[in-house]
């Protein structure tokens, strides 16, 4: 089984410290992990640091998988290249290799990932013609086509409608189950988090406030410290956990 742990990981832009002393004991593979926190809490920086795009103190340890099997999906999904969806996914698959030839397995992998995320019908469309939500789905397909064993996704559902949010999260959860991959998703919707993610990391001002099973992490106190609002998790009539927001945190 793959797992990912952080030991006193930090990162800075110039002099500004964005992330400090982030330690998380082994995040397990095989299920989804949420990374929650307010805007500018350092979520993207943490991802970029883990993905090796930024340097800094501390150690990122990936066990059970090669560092080359880690994929990071940035939040920005703007794509203006004159490529079809199909070509853009091939491209993600072939990075690292220099051969121009595509094998039958390559094409099967592309077909498979497009079908998995429900965008096979978009295969021949040009990237700039896509809607924001479609681009996001394509971006997810690009990230997972090489079947990575460690995946970091920055707000993978932010542009999707309700049905597709559900569908994509469900597909991601199945992917984690099948491959045993560590999958950390930065998400804002705590109801999504509680529904799909077994584990949650909470980040505020560049520090990890809590890490563990989702329902144990998302306490009213933590929600107040993360977002400055009063909120509580209640059970709906069918027993599923739901976040109720009461309003801005009382002083």
């Amino acid at each position: 089984m793959v797992s990912l742990s952080l030991e006193q990981v930090g990162a800075r832009y110039g002099r500004r410290e964005i992330l400090s002393d982030a330690s998380v004991p082994a995040i397990p593979g095989g299920s989804l992990t949420a990374l929650v926190g307010a805007n500018a809490a350092g979520k993207s920086t943490l991802f970029r640091r883990i993905a090796g795009q930024m340097r800094g103190p501390g150690t990122v340890r990936l066990s059970g998988a090669d560092p080359g099997e880690l994929r990071y999906m940035p939040q920005d999904t703007a794509m203006s290249a004159a490529l079809t969806v199909y070509e853009s996914v091939i491209l993600a698959l072939k990075q690292g290799g220099s051969g121009w030839r595509l094998s039958a397995e390559d094409l099967a992998a592309v077909d498979g990932v497009l079908a998995r995320f429900g965008i096979a019908h978009l295969a021949e469309r040009q990237l700039p013609e896509l809607s924001g939500g479609q681009r996001q789905a394509v971006s997810i397909a690009q990230t997972l086509v090489s079947r990575p064993r460690a995946v970091l996704m920055d707000e993978p559902t932010s542009a999707l409608d309700l049905q597709r949010q559900y569908g994509i999260l469900e597909a991601l959860r199945r992917y984690a189950e099948e491959t045993g991959a560590v999958m950390i998703l930065a998400l804002h919707d705590l109801n999504q988090v509680m529904r799909a993610c077994r584990t949650t990391l909470a980040l505020a001002q560049g520090r990890i406030l809590a890490a563990g099973p989702t329902l144990e992490v998302l306490t009213p106190d933590l929600i107040r410290r993360l977002y400055g609002i009063d909120g509580r998790v209640e059970r709906c009539s069918r027993g599923c956990p739901m976040l109720i927001v009461d309003g801005p945190a009382a002083a």
Binding site: M73, D76, M79, S80, L83, S139
Partner: peptide, 23 residues
């Protein structure tokens, strides 16, 4: 250039995205 064909194409998806693909 030909040897770098995939990486050069990836740059057109945006700098961050290309970097995320390992370019």
């Amino acid at each position: 250039f030909a040897r770098r064909a995939w990486a050069l194409t990836a740059i057109r998806l945006g700098e961050t995205r290309a970097a995320a693909m390992g370019v």
